[in-house]
């Protein structure tokens, strides 16, 4: 981005705030839509968000401008969308942290269910379970057996307290009865050197984070966490297949807007998203990072968000996880 574009952005933001008026829904969208990405450039949200922004803009007839608003594990960016005028010109792309944060954080600037509207759950992506190459473990069943034979000896990595890799690991411990020590990193990518060195024995990782290390066997993938196998690792069993029935962790992404979005705005955005998620070139771009298109209706999305909220709330309560 050049300096002139910052100026442009600044001016655009100033103008946008200055000319906020009740949206005329019939002509929606009549000006550029802002898609907030609550994480720093470089991650999956950034990559997927920029793809979606480009395709959605072409499909909906107005530019969709992706804007990174990182901070506080996604809370900062989500809050921007929650506080925006409910006119459909400010929306946010968020991952499961949006349903985990309310349970984990002592104070939240917004209420997930009162201040946000689910527009669509756009994608789904399993996590992949990776183990240290030195570990005599080739499958999920062997990991459980090894863990039971060596209680409390193993370490598992995460991308920080309350992140999906952490909670997936907790869920695994709760379901399997294995005991292991949680070792948080700033991102799951940073933990790989220690997994390679067998200082960390296993981790639940995003596919995008795991791919560079699994392609040349520096770490060993043993299972994925979806309801079905992923095309990225077609030979890997799902955790469910491996015996932990019903174990599912989904690194889904959803598009949300502020509460009180007019129905036709939600419908238009949802239709636009559903349409582009059938575009083969977008599907191909998403597949590169192990992400598969979903594209739910708004109501189905909202009830999915509720069930995810409940699911993680229980894992957090059972694991007695809290910031302290």
């Amino acid at each position: 981005m050049t300096v002139t574009r910052w100026f442009g952005l600044l001016i655009a933001v100033v103008l946008a705030t200055a000319t906020t008026s009740p949206a005329v829904a019939e002509s929606y969208p009549s000006k550029p839509i802002k898609l907030i990405l609550p994480y720093s450039p470089g991650g999956i949200i950034d990559y997927v968000g920029r793809q979606i922004a480009q395709y959605l803009g072409e499909s909906i007839g107005q530019p969709v401008v992706a804007e990174n608003r990182p901070g506080a594990g996604g809370i900062t960016g989500t809050d921007v969308a929650a506080r925006a005028a409910p006119d459909g010109y400010t929306i946010v792309l968020m991952d499961p942290a949006i349903v985990i944060n309310p349970t984990l954080q002592p104070s939240m600037p917004y209420d997930l269910f009162k201040n946000l509207t689910t527009i669509s759950i756009v994608s789904t992506s399993p996590e992949v379970v990776v183990v240290a190459p030195q570990l005599p473990v080739k499958s999920m069943a062997e990991l459980v057996a090894y863990g039971k034979a060596n209680p409390g000896k193993m370490n598992f990595a995460s991308a920080g307290v309350g992140t999906t890799p952490h909670l997936a690991g907790e869920l695994f411990l709760q379901r399997s009865g294995v005991t292991a020590t949680h070792v948080p990193y700033r991102s799951i990518g940073q933990s790989y050197p220690d997994i390679m060195a067998n200082k960390i024995q296993f981790a639940f990782s995003s596919i995008a984070g795991a791919l560079p290390f699994t392609t040349d066997n520096r770490v060993r993938p043993i299972a994925t966490t979806g309801t079905k196998r992923t095309p990225v690792y077609p030979d890997l069993q799902t955790v469910d297949e491996a015996g932990l029935k019903g174990f599912e962790v989904d690194l889904w992404l959803g598009v949300f807007g502020p509460a009180g979005l007019p129905n036709d705005v939600t419908t238009k955005l949802n239709a636009g998203l559903q349409k582009i998620l059938k575009n083969p070139s977008l599907i191909k771009a998403l597949a590169k990072v192990g992400v598969e298109p979903n594209g739910t209706a708004p109501e189905a999305g909202a009830s999915f968000v509720k069930s995810e909220f409940q699911k993680w709330k229980k894992v957090i309560a059972d694991g007695n996880i809290k910031p302290n």
Partner: peptide, 20 residues
Amino acid sequence: GSDINSGVRRFTFDQAGLAD
């Protein structure tokens, strides 16, 4: 900022801008 080991926010004075 947020302590990565516990998730506790240190010296942030309840400012979201200091959470990281």
